[in-house]
């Protein structure tokens, strides 16, 4: 028996013993395994298999290798959608995180409890509505004769072509996205801000620091880990914009905002082309993986987390 084999076997023995030691723990996560196996990974496998097929709604599918992928990757609309998704998704994430942070700090400075609670509730509300509602709302408000333009006209300013000019396509999407999502992030930030050790403020005050300086040197650093976490979790959703652009796209602005999921819907689902849809979706999943890994590295997430 060589010396190489013995450490291997010994290592494996230790592993198994450890696993037995943790068997109660493993038991606790069994439901999760079962669920993901049945409801997530199995359908995922099916979907990926379908991406290599020409799937007919009835009858046996035909294997066509990577034809679906070739079709999708050669489609200029797919490439356009990919560019839009990445750009709009990432910028949106950054804007949402930044704006919400500013607002959270702002809200935190309100002393009146009633006002504080009210504005918190009001900023959280939009999150509860679906994009069908929010999209429709903003289409009306930003219409040529909608609230905003009427206000501009009353002030003697020019009416703005929010939906009829491609230049406004992305800004409108970014703004309405922030509008809808802000409250959710604000709550998350407020949570960490509120739990800051009060003695830190005391010490700073004694040193004569103004509140503004306290915000800069105490609150911001303490909230930073939250920012990083949300950045990483948000990365998994960067390519997921669908309901918003489905609801809010219009002929003039569509090209600058159409996303990958919209492409899958229009090219795959509505045309009953399941093979195309699953191939494009698999590409989206792989892209998401890459983005998440990159973001995690940039945020140096691993430093804080223990895995």
């Amino acid at each position: 028996m060589s010396t190489v084999a013995r450490p291997d076997r010994a290592a494996r023995k230790r592993l198994f013993r450890k696993m037995r030691q943790y068997r109660a723990i493993y038991l606790m996560i069994v439901p999760v395994f079962v669920y993901f196996a049945v409801f997530t990974f199995y359908p995922l496998g099916l979907g990926v298999v379908q991406s290599f097929q020409r799937v007919r709604l009835i009858g046996a599918p035909v294997y066509i290798g990577t034809d679906n992928y070739a079709f999708v990757l050669n489609d200029p609309i797919f490439i356009l959608s990919m560019r839009n998704s990445i750009v709009v998704g990432t910028v949106s994430l950054f804007i949402n995180l930044a704006v919400s942070l500013v607002l959270a700090i702002s809200i935190n400075e309100i002393r009146n409890r009633f006002a504080k609670s009210l504005i918190q509730t009001v900023t959280f509300l939009p999150y509860l509505f679906s994009w069908t509602v929010v999209g429709g709302m903003w289409l009306q408000i930003l219409a040529h004769n909608g609230m905003v333009n009427n206000l501009l006209a009353a002030l003697g300013l020019e009416r703005l072509p929010f939906f009829t000019s491609s230049a406004w396509g992305r800004p409108v999407i970014l703004f309405t996205n922030a509008w809808k999502q802000a409250g959710y992030f604000i709550v998350l930030y407020l949570a960490s801000i509120v739990s800051i050790d009060p003695t830190l403020y005391e010490a700073a005050r004694i040193d004569g620091a103004s509140r503004m300086k306290q915000i800069r040197y105490i609150i911001l650093p303490q909230a930073w880990p939250t920012v990083k976490t949300l950045l990483v979790l948000g990365a998994t959703g960067v390519l997921r914009n669908f309901d918003q652009v489905l609801m809010m796209n219009r002929p003039a602005t569509k090209d600058s905002i159409r996303t990958l999921l919209l492409y899958i819907y229009e090219e795959g689902i509505t045309k009953l082309k399941i093979g195309t849809a699953t191939a494009a979706a698999t590409i989206v999943m792989l892209l998401t993986l890459v983005i998440t890994v990159v973001v995690r590295r940039i945020a140096r997430y691993e430093q804080d987390a223990s895995y």
Partner: peptide, 30 residues
């Protein structure tokens, strides 16, 4: 919903479709 049902093997005698869906289904020979 129609895609889901057909994919699961449900059998219908009549299906309501739009013109676009007619084209797509005929091409698949179903």
């Amino acid at each position: 919903v129609m895609m889901n049902k057909l994919n699961a093997g449900e059998q219908y005698d009549l299906l309501y479709v739009s013109l676009q869906q007619l084209y797509d289904m005929q091409v698949d020979g179903i």
